[in-house]
Design a protein around this nucleic acid. Structure first.
Length: 640
DNA sequence: GTTAGGG
DNA sequence: CCCTAAC
């Protein structure tokens, strides 16, 4: 069998540098002009006996402006074997991609395509089986024949001849050996036909060889999910005509699925790609067709950035850089990278998060440890730059490769700085500050000693400290959502709750889910009965709404109670007092954790609410007045 | 800076 | 308790 892949420049017959340059690394983006040359890919069909037959000239698929570059043009010749499949994709000036299939691209063709894929997969499986059984090395010979006629259809043909159905280790690496072939130069020059025999063959050629139809997978269904990386690579290769180094399964599956989906008008065909499954809707005639044909080449990834990469002239790479293995790799990588660049950069938060995970897991960031971290997106593919891995400490930011949106991206790892509330023991430090400590001790009566100290101290003397508190608190608010519970050791989050018996406790910092799915941290401190009474008293004295004043008068020593807190608490008290009365303690007794608010207090709250017209409408005022205790009457007279 | 009210 | 619009 033989595989013929042709690249041509149908413009003026010059294949030359346009192809060469294009496949050379990074040249693509920098020199759009060269890409303007149309290129024709000639694919092959697989005969029933496993032979591959080159496509003919008229089996041409035109892809216009396939790349994002305005003038680029690409033609793909596809032969499905039985009949011609012609798919034309063109992008209008508006950037919209139009895709159309020729009349001949009928169900039969698509079925053939499907079958081809099946065969390919089977082939791969077979290979793996054989490889596993560790047989004696069998090498296949790949014959590459490039010929280029300058006149009509200057085509470089790469004839790949595989003489054995499988190769020993059809890995990416081995297929890269491809590039060692001695005819590489001829391809570059294109005008000189050449031939080369390659040991160890390419996996691509293996793929093209057919084998009997014995599938483990259900007929008419290929589940990408079940494929190994290697299989996906093969499929990728067949699909896009080039190899990939990406080992991200998701990425591969996505690409392949998209390609298969978009290579033709699927809706009108027998294929459906759903959930990474390629399924064939039709049943009938095509099923037995052994002469499956291979035709996959075009795909439309418009609008997805990565599209360019794939749209890159498929097998150029192989045809061209046949001699430099590393270049090939580099280029491939660069393509992935370039594609990646079109994807949004990872957010700061994302980076931090990942870094966070890493440091937590104590994974040394060595060159080889590109393991999945956190979200399973890290691509093991990642080639860590030698310089980088050699001197990791020399860089402030160590980068790693990650796959974002299916493309490899380099992501800097930053070591995270402390981003949380300052340690609670900052207070102990503050105690040593010269001001106010003495009187604070004198003022405090037990429970509030701590806070009072803090209050006194922080007010007059410690501006810097205060500012620190503020700033950190603020940043915490914003960013901490995702790192809660992970960033900080518990001891910091839950500081000294050493003496639960005393109300000195600072209160817990609890995290609550926020509307946006994140978490926010709040400093919770339960209201004590004393505080409640003070509040009620304050309200009775100043009236509801004058929270600042109440705060000033009654809560001057409670630095942690803001006027807003008072207001909120009052609101709650109001609610509680009116809610519970009818049901008689219903709510109150239900809450075990918090001590129920004594009825007298609630009564007074109700009273105050009533006189300030804060009582709910439906509440009977008669009952209120009747039960109103006289004891507090004097206090509130002034407000009546 | 406070208040009021929603979350 | 947090956030914020409206004072």
């Amino acid at each position: 069998m033989e595989t013929v892949v042709g690249i041509e420049d149908n413009d003026d017959g010059k294949l030359e540098d346009s192809v060469v340059d294009r496949s050379s690394s990074a040249a693509l983006s920098s020199s759009p002009k060269k890409i303007s040359n149309p290129v024709v890919y000639k694919l092959v069909r697989v005969e029933g006996d496993g032979r591959l037959v080159p496509a003919t000239d008229d089996e041409v698929m035109e892809v216009e402006d396939f790349l994002e570059y305005e003038n680029s043009e690409m033609r793909v010749v596809a032969d499905t074997g039985q009949s011609l499949e012609c798919i034309s994709i063109e992008r209008s000036s508006s950037g919209k991609l139009r895709l159309e299939c020729s009349e001949e691209a009928d169900l039969g063709k698509l079925n053939a395509k499907f079958q081809y894929i099946e065969q390919m997969l089977q082939k791969v499986k077979q290979e793996e089986r054989l490889r596993l059984s560790s047989r004696s090395p069998v090498h296949s010979h790949v014959k590459i024949d490039s010929q280029c006629s300058a006149d009509k259809f200057p085509v470089v043909n790469e004839k790949v001849r595989s003489e054995t159905p499988y190769q020993e280790a059809p890995s990416i690496a081995s297929s890269l050996n491809y590039s060692h072939s001695n005819q590489s130069g001829s391809i570059d020059q294109c005008s000189r036909p050449s031939e080369g025999v390659i040991e160890s063959g390419s996996s691509a050629s293996d793929v093209y060889s057919t084998s009997k139809h014995n599938f483990s997978m259900p007929e008419g269904e290929i589940c990408l999910d079940k494929l190994s990386i290697k299989e996906l690579h093969e499929l990728f290769k067949v699909t896009f005509g080039r190899e990939t180094t990406v080992k991200d399964k998701q990425w591969l599956k996505r690409r392949i699925a998209m390609s298969l989906t978009n290579s033709c008008d699927v809706s009108a065909t027998t294929f459906t790609v759903k959930d990474n499954k390629i399924t064939r809707k039709c049943e009938e005639e095509c099923s037995g067709n052994a002469s499956a044909a291979a035709v996959i080449s075009v795909k439309n990834m418009a609008g997805e950035g990565c599209g360019i990469e794939d749209n890159q002239v498929a097998s150029e790479t192989r045809l061209k850089n046949l001699n430099v293995e590393n270049e090939l790799r580099d280029e491939d990588q660069q393509r992935e990278e370039r594609a990646a660049k079109r994807i949004r950069k990872p957010t700061k938060r994302y980076i931090e998060e990942l870094s966070e995970n890493e440091s937590r897991e104590h994974i040394p960031r060595s060159s080889s440890s590109n393991k999945n971290i956190g979200h399973g997106h890290v691509s093991p593919t990642a080639y860590v730059e030698p310089a980088r891995s050699a001197f990791p400490e020399a860089r402030m930011f160590i980068t790693r490769f990650d796959s974002l949106g299916g493309s490899d991206v380099q992501i800097p790892c930053v070591s995270r700085v402390r981003r949380s509330r300052p340690r609670k023991n900052i207070k102990s430090l503050m105690k040593f500050l010269p001001t106010g400590v003495g009187e604070a001790a004198k003022l405090s009566n037990g429970s509030d000693a701590d806070s009072e100290i803090q209050d006194k101290v922080s007010k007059p003397c410690s501006m810097p400290v205060k500012m620190h508190l503020l700033s950190t608190t603020e940043s915490v608010k914003e960013k901490q959502c995702l790192v809660i519970g992970t960033t900080e050791p518990r001891q910091e989050l839950r500081p000294k709750r050493i003496d639960p018996s005393s109300n000195t406790s600072e209160g817990d910092i609890v995290t609550v889910p926020t509307a946006k799915g994140g978490m926010r941290r709040k400093h919770h401190r339960a209201w004590t009965l004393v505080e409640v009474m003070k509040l009620v008293e304050g309200v009775s004295r100043c009236g509801p709404g004058r929270w600042s004043e109440i705060k000033r008068l009654s809560f001057s020593s409670y630095s942690y109670r803001t006027s807003v807190d008072l207001k909120d608490k009052w609101r709650n008290l109001l609610k509680a007092s009116f809610a519970q009365t009818p049901a008689d303690e219903g709510m109150n007794s239900r809450k075990h954790g918090t001590a129920p608010i004594p009825e007298p207090i609630l009564v007074r709250v109700r009273e105050l609410a009533e006189m300030n017209s804060q009582a709910p409408q439906n509440f009977s005022s008669s009952k209120l007045t009747a039960s109103g205790p006289g004891s507090v009457h004097g206090d509130r007279l002034g407000y009546l």
